[in-house]
């Protein structure tokens, strides 16, 4: 009985951390970018206000849309939340860690993307098709790079289960961050930028048809559905950042259940996330958006680096 309560509490903590922190990360990125551009920028809590506003607004649905259009936001949230309970943030192992591993995470992301891309085509709008096409093309190179870079870390720990990997890494500090991890880290960082639609791959703030990718795909969404989609993509950012943080620097992560350990872990997590968010903002501010057909070259780099990191691990042993 005690076990069930602890597990339930842990689950709520895990979901709560990601769900509630997601808009905050976006706030930090926006604020940092504004500061770099010598602007004051909106408050870091602005994304919360945006979301609550959108949740209250009515949804406009295209007359051409089928049931998929209304189904997709819910599926997207659901698949993202399943991922959330698999990717450790402040504690490992998570209570339901055994329902899936990193392969599952990658393919659940693909599941959400698959339906979102279909929803883009659903309204018969040219923009939707354009966005879906670009998103799926980019994703097809991003996904292998993402899986490989995580495999490179996973094989160090001898498991593809994220909770077990993170736990084993944080208990054996000697295995943290070897050269093959550096290659994997660079690859996963590029992947993060691509997957979360950031400059130089995509610009989340543009609505120009020549350049937009993700925004084009969800152009027909509005009101509450848009809120769900935005929230899901913010959570996706947290998922990727916590992968970066906990796979490569699992410092401070709680592996035993005690208030002190959890407290340290939460502080460490927030600090790591903030740093990474600032890192993303720096990359966004110092780079120009790439032309669409230059993006594959960048992603190919991530792909090759992650492949190398895996090969190097097996040949050299680190």
């Amino acid at each position: 009985m005690n076990d069930i309560i602890t597990n339930a509490l842990l689950l709520i903590l895990q979901l709560g951390v990601t769900v509630l922190m997601a808009p905050f990360i976006f706030g930090i990125i926006k604020k940092t970018k504004a500061r770099i551009q010598n602007r004051r920028g909106p408050s870091i809590f602005q994304p919360y206000a945006d979301l609550t506003k959108l949740l209250k607004k009515e949804v406009v649905i295209s007359e051409n849309a089928s049931w998929l259009f209304s189904f997709t936001p819910y599926l997207l949230i659901a698949s993202t939340l399943v991922i959330v309970i698999l990717v450790p943030t402040v504690f490992a192992p998570l209570p339901f860690h055994w329902i899936g591993d990193i392969i599952t995470v990658a393919y659940l992301l693909a599941l959400g993307r698959f339906f979102l891309a279909l929803a883009g085509l659903d309204t018969a709008s040219g923009f939707g098709g354009l966005g879906s096409s670009r998103e799926m093309s980019i994703a097809s190179i991003v996904e292998p790079a993402m899986m490989l870079s995580i495999f490179a870390v996973a094989v160090t720990a001898g498991s593809t289960n994220l909770s077990i990997v993170v736990r084993s890494l944080s208990t054996t500090p000697a295995s943290i961050f070897n050269p093959s991890h550096l290659l994997a880290f660079v690859a996963l960082f590029i992947v993060t930028i691509a997957e979360t639609g950031r400059i130089p791959v995509d610009n989340p703030e543009t609505h120009l048809e020549l350049t937009m990718i993700h925004e084009a795909m969800i152009l027909e969404y509005s009101g509450r559905y848009l809120a769900f989609i935005e929230w899901a993509s913010q959570m996706k950012m947290v998922i990727f950042l916590s992968l970066l943080a906990n796979l490569f620097f699992p410092i401070g992560l709680a592996t035993v259940l005690s208030p002190a350990a959890l407290g340290v872990s939460i502080v460490a997590f927030v600090a790591k996330m903030t740093l990474l968010a600032i890192g993303i903002a720096l990359v966004e501010s110092t780079n120009a958006k790439l032309r669409l057909f230059r993006v594959p070259d960048l992603l190919m780099t991530a792909f090759i680096l992650s492949l190398l990191s895996l090969i190097l691990y097996f040949i050299v042993g680190a």
Binding site: N178, P179, S180, L183, L298, M300, L305
Partner: peptide, 16 residues
């Protein structure tokens, strides 16, 4: 090791 790998990464980024 890590610095050397970093050098390798920059070489790759030059290629890309």
């Amino acid at each position: 090791d890590i610095l050397a790998t970093g050098i390798l990464v920059t070489a790759f980024l030059i290629i890309s």
